[in-house]
Simulated scan of single mutants.
Amino acid sequence: MTGMGRPEKPVNRTVPARAKLAEFLRERKARAGRTYEQMSETAGGMPSKATFERATSGSSVPSWETVSEFINMTITEEEVSTSALGSAYTCGLDLWIRARRATRAPYYVHKAPDPNLISTEADLLRDLRRQHVWAGYPTPGEMERMSGIGELPSSTTRRVIKGEILPVDPRQTIAFLKACYVVRPVDLAPWLFAAARAHAYLGAASKWDSAHQELLARIEKSQDQEEAAPAPSAS
C-alpha cells in the first residue's frame, strides 16, 4: 500500500529486467512495512516520496543512489541479526546493472568479456568497451565521479567508450574497470595481465607487468590473512 492507503499500480513489465528491479524494491518495502512517505521522511526528504514511488514503477531505471537509499530505508531486524544486509546490496546492484544494460546499452552483449582471451591492443580496447556495456553503460560523468580526483577524466572516458584510445596507464585502466564494477583485486588481475600481453609487442609491458605483480601480491596477502584468522566459535 502507498502512504495514502491506495493500492499501487501494477509494475510496468515492458522491459523484464527493469520490472525485476521494481519487484525487488517493492518486496523490500513490503517486508519492512514502511510507506514511501515514511521512507522519504527518514531520509530527510532526499530522495522524495515521488522518487521512491517511481523507483518501483518499472517505467524507468532509478539512479543507483536511489536504489541504495531505498535499501537503506527498508533494512529489517532480521537482515541485521543475520548479517544478510550485504547480500541485499549485492542483489540490488546486480538487478540495477541488468536493468541499465537492458535499457541503455547501445548494442547487446551476450556475456561479460573474458580478459583471458585478449592478445592485442585492439582486443583490449574492444573488451573494455564491452565491459562498459555489460556494466549498464555508465556515463563518462558517472564514471569520473566514481573515481578519484583526476584519475578518470570524463573526456578520456568518452574517447575510450568511442573506441578512439586506450587508458594511458595501469592506474587509469583500473579506474575505468572499477567504474564498470570490476572491483575485486582477483577480478582486476586478469585484466592487467591481459594489458601486459597487449602491450608486449611494443616493448611497453613493464609497467603493466609491475601493476599486475603488485595486485597479485595484494591478493596473496589477503588470502594469507583470511587463512590466519581465527575460526568462529562453535558455541
Results as ranks from 00 to 15, higher is better:
Ile97Lys: 07
Pro47Leu: 06
Ser57Lys: 00
Asp127Glu: 11
Ala217Cys: 01
Ile75Glu: 07
Phe24Glu: 03
Gly58Lys: 02
Gly141Thr: 13
Arg100Trp: 00
Ser222Glu: 13
Met46Ile: 15
Ser210Val: 10
Asp224Pro: 05
Ile165Asp: 03
Leu25Glu: 04
Glu53Val: 15
Ile75Pro: 03
Pro232Met: 00
Asp209Ala: 08
Tyr89Pro: 11
Ile75Val: 11
Val61Tyr: 01
His132Leu: 10
Phe52His: 09
Lys178Thr: 08
Trp191Ala: 04
Glu142Val: 12
Ile71Lys: 05
Arg171His: 12
Ala135Pro: 14
His110Phe: 10
Glu142Asp: 14
Pro16Asn: 01
Glu69Gly: 07
Val186Leu: 10
Asp127Tyr: 15
Glu226Lys: 14
Ala19Asn: 00
Pro47Phe: 08
Glu65Gly: 09
Val109Cys: 02
Leu21Met: 05
Asn72Arg: 10
Pro113Leu: 02
Arg98Ile: 01
Ile71Val: 08
Thr35Trp: 09
Ala102Glu: 04
Arg18Ile: 02
Ala228Phe: 07
Pro10His: 06
Met143Tyr: 06
Ser233Pro: 04
Val133Glu: 08
Glu65Thr: 12
Thr56Trp: 00
Leu188Asp: 01
Ser222Val: 04
Lys49Gly: 04
Pro140Glu: 01
Arg126Asp: 08
Ser222Arg: 15
Ser155Trp: 13
Asp123Arg: 13
Phe176Asp: 02
His212Tyr: 04
Ser154Glu: 15
Leu85Val: 09
Glu23Gly: 09
Pro167His: 02
Ser87Phe: 06
Glu144His: 05
Ser48Arg: 05
Gly3Trp: 06
Leu215Phe: 06
Thr14Met: 12
Lys29Leu: 13
Glu69Asn: 10
Gly58Ala: 08
Ile174Met: 06
Arg18Met: 11
Ala84Arg: 14
Thr156Tyr: 13
Arg13Thr: 06
Val15Leu: 02
Val182Trp: 02
Met39Ala: 10
Asp187Ser: 12
Glu41Val: 12
Ala30Phe: 06
Gly5Asp: 03
Leu166Gly: 01
Glu144Thr: 07
Lys162Tyr: 08
Met39Lys: 07
Val186Asn: 07
Ala88Asp: 10
Arg13Phe: 00
Thr14Leu: 14
Arg54Val: 06
Ser48Asp: 02
Leu85Gly: 00
Met1Tyr: 09
Asp169Leu: 02
Ala205His: 09
Pro115Phe: 10
Gln172Glu: 15
Thr42Gly: 14
Phe24Asp: 04
Ala105Phe: 03
His199Cys: 05
His110Ser: 15
Leu166Cys: 04
Asp114Pro: 05
Arg13Leu: 02
Gly33Ser: 07
Glu37Asp: 10
Ala217Trp: 07
Pro113Tyr: 04
Thr103Ser: 04
Lys49Glu: 11
Tyr181Gln: 13
Asp187Arg: 04
Val11Thr: 10
Ala211Arg: 00
Val133Met: 10
Glu226Phe: 11
Glu121Thr: 08
Ala195Met: 06
Ser59Ile: 00
Ala99Thr: 00
Tyr36Gln: 11
Gly33Val: 11
Met39Leu: 13
Leu215Ala: 05
His199Phe: 11
Ala105Cys: 05
Met143Gly: 00
Val133Ile: 10
Ala194Gly: 01
Asp187Leu: 06
Arg26His: 10
